[in-house]
């Protein structure tokens, strides 16, 4: 069994009357890409800040690499790389100088540091921009610099707090691929995001947060297995008699139908050949229909079913 890298036990953090973290617990094993998924205001960044001892907390325990994490746990901090939500670099230094600065906070040896800085530049693909000032970089390149500053010292634990906010799709893919590569090289990764597609794409295990609480945890398949919905079938149809809809609603595994005048949505729980059975009913009724989609459940469906609100629609 792989050792535990991060253990958060019963963490409570209050801001006055507001409970930011409500008895939040978590255990992350070595080699995982652990996703913390939740809407804005769910407590992801507060969790990270508590984990890094940037914030004090009211109750609970945090252990990193099997040792208690405190503000003076400098030996633990040296093993952690942090990539914040906002780009945290000095505009007055060049790309190389910025990476060297942050790397130097962890590695004193000049030669070793130099090699690490070069590796980081290569890793994020900023070789052509090393002498540029951050203000001259595009948003995507700036995010890459932000990542390079966080990983240059080759940390064992990398914490990424929404690193792809306001990033173009190309840079986002590159960043996500980079995270997976870092993980392959041996780093344990904690990845917070409110973009479920990203979390689904790269995370090996996911915890879903809402209002400071962990509402679900597991692999993406485990999470999807927690809900009734296993398949959503959508059919473009301009006319749907009530008796045909009733017939579809009574098909095996169908638990919900929804028709808005142009599109019929049928949600199924388990079973196979759901689509074929639905289409057979429509053909039998001699009803013409347009495009047909069959979608597997997403983490948004998981969030929707557990909390009753969509992940995307949640307000800060």
């Amino acid at each position: 069994m792989k050792p535990t890298v991060v253990k958060i036990d019963n963490l409570v953090k209050r801001y006055g009357e507001l409970v930011a973290l409500d008895h939040f617990s978590l255990e992350i094993k070595e080699g995982e890409i652990f996703g913390l998924l939740g809407p804005n205001g769910s407590g992801k960044t507060t969790t990270i800040n508590c984990l890094l001892s940037l914030l004090s907390f009211d109750k609970g325990e945090i252990e990193v690499f099997g040792r208690e994490m405190t503000p003076t746990s400098y030996d633990i901090k040296r093993e952690i790389g942090v990539i914040m939500q906002n780009v945290a670099v000095l505009d007055e230094l060049s790309v190389r100088e910025n990476i060297d600065y942050f790397c130097g906070l962890y590695i004193a040896d000049k030669e070793k540091r130099k090699a690490c800085v070069e590796d980081a530049i290569k890793f994020v693909g900023l070789e052509d921009f090393v002498n540029f000032r951050p203000k001259k970089l595009s948003g995507g390149l700036l995010r890459r610099l932000n990542i390079a500053c966080g990983i240059a010292h080759k940390p064992k634990l990398i914490i990424l707090d929404e690193p792809t906010v306001a990033v173009d799709p190309q840079s986002r893919n590159r960043i996500l691929e980079g995270i997976q590569e870092l993980n392959r090289e041996g780093a344990t990764v904690i990845y917070t995001s409110h973009y479920m597609e990203e979390v689904e794409q790269i995370c090996t295990r996911i915890a879903i947060m809402d209002k400071g609480r962990k509402i679900a945890e597991g692999t993406k398949d485990e999470l999807k297995g927690m809900i009734r919905n296993t398949e959503s079938v959508s059919i473009e149809i301009l006319e749907l008699p009530e008796d045909v809809r009733e017939k579809i609603a009574h098909l095996p595994h169908v638990y919900e139908t929804d028709y808005d005048g142009t599109k019929l949505t049928v949600r199924c729980s388990g079973g196979r050949h759901n689509l074929i059975r639905i289409l057979a009913v429509l053909q039998e009724a001699e009803l013409g229909f347009g495009r047909v989609y069959s979608e597997l459940p997403t983490l948004n469906d998981v969030f929707l079913e557990i909390t009753g609100t969509a992940l995307r629609d949640s307000k800060e």
């Binding site: 940037l54 942090v82 780009v87 945290a88 000095l90």
Partner: peptide
């Protein structure tokens, strides 16, 4: 302005996350 740059919130956060006292 140099002090302002070094005291920038996000920059200080990241520095505080490192091993430096």
């Amino acid at each position: 302005p140099a002090m302002v740059a070094m005291n920038r919130k996000d920059f200080r956060y990241r520095t505080n996350c490192s091993g430096i006292r």
